[in-house]
C-alpha cells in the first residue's frame, strides 16, 4: 500500500469517527426532546396561605391524586388546628376557653397530648421552652400582629411573671388546670404540630406524595424532591438580608425549625425587643441570635429550637442529640456551634 493511500484511509476514518460521535450526541438530544414533549412532568403544586400568623407554603406533588386537592386538605387541617389552639382571640379556641376558665377543664385527647408534650419539653429544657407565658407575651404585645408593642415597666413584668411559667400548669389525664391565672400559649409548638398533622394527612392520601411545608421558615418534609433528591435548605444568616444564607443542610425527610431574634421584633432607642422570652427574666432572651434544630417531627424541632435559642449553646442543647435531634446555635457574638450530627446533614 502506498503512503498517500494510507493517509487517505486515515483521514476517512477520522471523519467517520467524528460523524459517529456527533450522530450519537444528536440521537441523545433527539431522545431527550422527544421525552420532554411526550410525557407530562411531575409538577409541584404550590399553595400559600396565611395560617398561624405567618405565610405557610405547601409544595406537594403526587402521581396518584390531584396534588392541588392534597394541598387544600393540608391547609384545611392547619386552619382547623389554628383556630383550636389560638390562645388569645378566637372564642372557639380550646386554649382560649382554658385560659378564661375558673376551674379545671376537661380537654380532648389532641389538646391533652399537646399540653403534655409542652410540659415534657419545659422540664427537659429547665423551663427554656415554656407554654405558659401567655400573660407575658400579651403584656409585650406579641399576642397579635395588630397589637401595639411596647416595653413594659419592671413592675408590670414582675406581675406578669407571677402568672407565668409551666409550673402553673397541671394535667391529669385529660383534666387541665391553670394556677395563678396563668395563660397557655402553645404558639411555640402548636404550629409544628399542625404542620406535622398536615404532612401526615398528605401521606394518608398518597403515601408516595413528595414535597414540603414551609411555615414561616419552619419546614417539614413530605418526601424527597422528585421522589429521590434531598431538598436543599438554606439557614438564614441572622444578620444578613432575607436571601443571605449562613449554611446549607440537605433533608429528604424530617423537619427543621429556626428561632431567631430577627423574625418579629420592635426597636426602642436602638434596642431590639423580639418575641422569644426568657421565662426567668421576663425579657427577650439574649444568649443567641439564631437557633436551628433538625428533628423527625416539626413539633419537636419547633419546641427545641425555641429552647436552644433561649438557652444558648449549653449542655442541655448538646443533650438534644439523645432525643434524636441536632442543633446549631449562633451566639450573640455571631459564633456558630453545632452538634456533631448536625454536620452530617450538611452533605449530600
Amino acid at each position: 500500500m502506498r503512503k498517500a493511500d494510507r493517509k487517505d484511509v486515515l483521514k476517512k476514518r477520522i471523519v467517520i469517527q467524528s460523524i459517529v460521535f456527533l450522530t450519537a450526541i444528536l440521537i441523545f438530544l433527539a431522545v431527550a426532546l422527544w421525552m420532554n414533549f411526550s410525557r407530562g412532568s411531575t409538577a409541584y403544586v404550590e399553595k400559600d396561605e396565611f395560617v398561624f400568623g405567618t405565610l405557610v407554603r405547601v409544595v406537594v406533588s403526587s402521581e396518584k391524586r390531584d396534588p392541588k386537592a392534597i394541598a387544600d386538605a393540608m391547609i384545611q387541617e392547619m386552619k382547623r388546628l389554628e383556630s383550636k389552639f389560638h390562645p388569645y382571640h378566637d372564642g372557639n379556641s380550646v386554649i382560649f376557653k382554658l385560659n378564661h376558665a375558673t376551674g379545671p377543664v376537661t380537654v380532648d385527647e389532641e389538646t391533652a397530648f399537646l399540653i403534655s408534650k409542652s410540659l415534657y419539653y419545659s422540664e427537659i429544657t429547665a423551663g427554656a421552652f415554656d407554654p405558659a407565658l401567655g400573660r407575658l407575651i400579651k403584656l409585650w404585645g406579641f399576642d397579635s400582629p395588630d397589637t401595639k408593642k411596647r416595653v413594659p415597666t419592671s413592675e408590670e413584668i414582675a406581675k406578669a411573671l407571677e402568672s407565668s411559667g409551666y409550673a402553673n400548669v397541671e394535667i391529669h389525664s385529660k383534666e387541665v388546670s391553670l394556677k395563678n391565672h396563668a395563660w397557655l400559649d402553645l404558639g411555640g409548638i402548636a404550629k409544628g404540630y399542625a404542620v406535622d398533622q398536615a404532612v401526615r394527612l398528605a401521606k394518608k392520601i398518597d403515601e408516595n406524595a413528595t414535597g414540603f411545608v414551609d411555615a414561616g421558615g419552619d419546614i417539614a418534609i413530605i418526601g424527597p424532591k422528585f421522589g429521590q433528591f434531598p431538598w436543599k435548605i438554606g439557614i438564614r444568616d441572622p444578620r444578613g438580608g432575607p436571601q443571605d444564607i449562613i449554611g446549607v443542610v440537605y433533608l429528604s425527610e424530617g423537619a427543621i425549625a429556626t428561632s431567631g431574634d430577627y423574625e418579629r421584633y420592635f426597636e426602642v432607642d436602638g434596642v431590639r425587643y423580639h418575641h422569644i422570652f426568657d421565662s426567668k427574666t421576663g425579657y427577650p432572651a439574649r444568649k443567641s441570635i439564631s437557633a436551628t434544630v433538625i428533628a423527625e417531627k416539626l413539633v419537636d424541632a419547633d419546641a427545641l429550637s425555641t429552647a436552644a435559642f433561649v438557652l444558648g449553646w449549653s449542655k442541655i442543647v448538646e443533650g438534644f442529640v439523645g432525643l434524636g435531634a441536632q442543633a446549631m446555635v449562633i451566639d450573640a457574638e455571631g459564633k456558630i456551634y453545632k452538634t456533631k450530627g448536625f454536620v452530617a446533614y450538611e452533605k449530600e
Binding site: 469517527q17 460521535f21 450519537a24 450526541i25 441523545f28 431522545v31 431527550a32 421525552m35 420532554n36 410525557r39 407530562g40 412532568s41 411531575t42 409538577a43 402521581e63 424532591k225 422528585f226 421522589g227 429521590q228
Partner: peptide, 29 residues
C-alpha cells in the same frame, strides 16, 4: 483520551436521561 471522553460524556448524558425518565421531570438535566 478520545475513547475515555466519549465514554464519560455518553455515560453522563444517559444517566441524566434515565433520572429524568424516572422522576418524569426535566429537572435533573
Amino acid at each position: 483520551v478520545r475513547v475515555s471522553v466519549t465514554g464519560a460524556t455518553v455515560n453522563n448524558v444517559i444517566q441524566v436521561l434515565i433520572a429524568s425518565a424516572m422522576v418524569k421531570n426535566w429537572a435533573p438535566t
